[in-house]
Design a protein around this nucleic acid. Structure first.
Lengths: 220, 220
DNA sequence: CTGTTGAAAGGACAGGTGTCTCCAATTATG
DNA sequence: CATAATTGGAGACACCTGTCCTTTCAACAG
């Protein structure tokens, strides 16, 4: 077990006697990591790749709740709330996790305060972003949410003019709408010259406009 | 400082040398406990009363994020994310909190694992409910959300037929809509005999119908 | 008692948004 | 190359929902 990556990301070192009890779990792109309703078996620490968390409603509708890259922890809610798995977690690319089995956590790590602080920080982060997106989704029309989405991902990655828009469908369900409606909005922005669109590639020509539309809403 | 209530609710005992450093904070109905954008000064443990958490958007719209009764902790997100206060917290009735100043937490309680577990549990709970309501708000029409709201509060309090509907406005903003729209739905339900309505008093005549409408969505 | 004020309910309307459907473009297949 | 299959975009429509405004009714002051 190579824990170097883990250490770099989470800045935490497991005691030697624990290390042998950890597992490395790997998932291929699109593979399901956790499935709604199943029992949780431990804590998952992402050390490579990306995954997304989505919920499939009884209605058949889906909502992307979060798109996660490292550092990111899975299983925390379920363990502390002692409940079944709340959402589907699916590998967006090949993923690697350090897996801490539940009984290992309970027996060895529960009272380790710096380990616990990892969990606290992660949960606080999730809670903050969840609150924000809940608010934004509830109170802003789709055009604002879309502009906000662009502004959010733009600010988080330097200075590229092109938005590597992963698939419009994905954005649609992330911000809780349909592709049809995104098309409507993108068409309008395209016509007024705010963006230049070619299929899945969207180039923002006028960031000022987009920022204006976003109404200062951000997802982070 | 009488910590008996605290102990009963949170099942945790502070060390003697810490007790003298805690404060009792009280708030009158409608008084603001925390204000968006302010700096957080410590952890608040609710021991009496109820408060609600709401966010005022730039647009002027408001969304009730949560309605909290004991046990409930305030300030956790802000402390672990080291950010400004995220939402307004307002006393719904007279409230009492045990207040743990930030430096006391940092110096004395940070490495106390059973104290930390209080926080973990609370955050997991918040996260779970936040995720649920985010999903529900995004994916269900108002009529479903309203039915779900009734089912949720019904199941959490024995067997009264009347819903002590605190103010329609409140329900409206809790489930992210307007009073106007609630009126529309209630009128329809009233006409079809599902409920009997008199002003703020709503009596459910046909729980089966309401449960059907709720589409198995629940807020908890 | 009467006019004023304010709150609650509902009518009318318009904009936002999802669904369904069709058309065009692109890709795969033979 | 020609045809079938698939995908993306957009038109049409309907419904959900918020805003605005009118009506009604109750409380209240003069």
């Amino acid at each position: 077990m190579n824990l170097e990556k883990f250490y770099k990301i989470y800045n935490y070192q497991f005691r030697n006697d624990i290390i042998s009890k950890l597992q490395l779990k790997t998932y291929k792109e699109n593979e399901c990591i956790l499935k709604t309703g199943d029992e949780i078996d431990g804590l998952y620490f992402l050390i490579e790749g990306k995954y997304y968390v989505s919920s499939l409603e009884i209605t058949g509708k889906e909502l992307l709740l979060r798109y996660s890259k490292k550092p990111s922890i899975l299983g925390d809610i379920e363990i502390f709330e002692q409940c079944k798995i709340q959402s589907n977690c699916i590998a967006a690319e090949n993923c690697e996790f350090i897996f801490v089995p539940l009984h290992i956590y309970n027996n060895y790590l529960k009272s380790d305060s710096s380990f616990t602080h990892l969990l606290l920080k992660e949960m606080a982060y999730k809670l903050k972003t969840c609150t924000i997106s809940s608010r934004v989704n509830a109170l802003s029309p789709v055009s604002v949410r879309l502009a906000a989405y662009y502004c959010t991902i733009e600010s988080s990655r330097a200075n590229s003019e092109y938005i590597t828009t992963n698939n419009l469908d994905e954005i649609a369900s992330l911000i809780g709408t349909t592709k049809r409606h995104l098309n409507r909005i993108l068409k309008q922005w395209n016509e007024e010259g705010t963006i230049h669109r070619e299929g899945d590639k969207v180039q923002v020509l006028n960031w000022g406009k987009v920022k204006l539309y976003s109404n200062d809403v951000r997802f982070e």
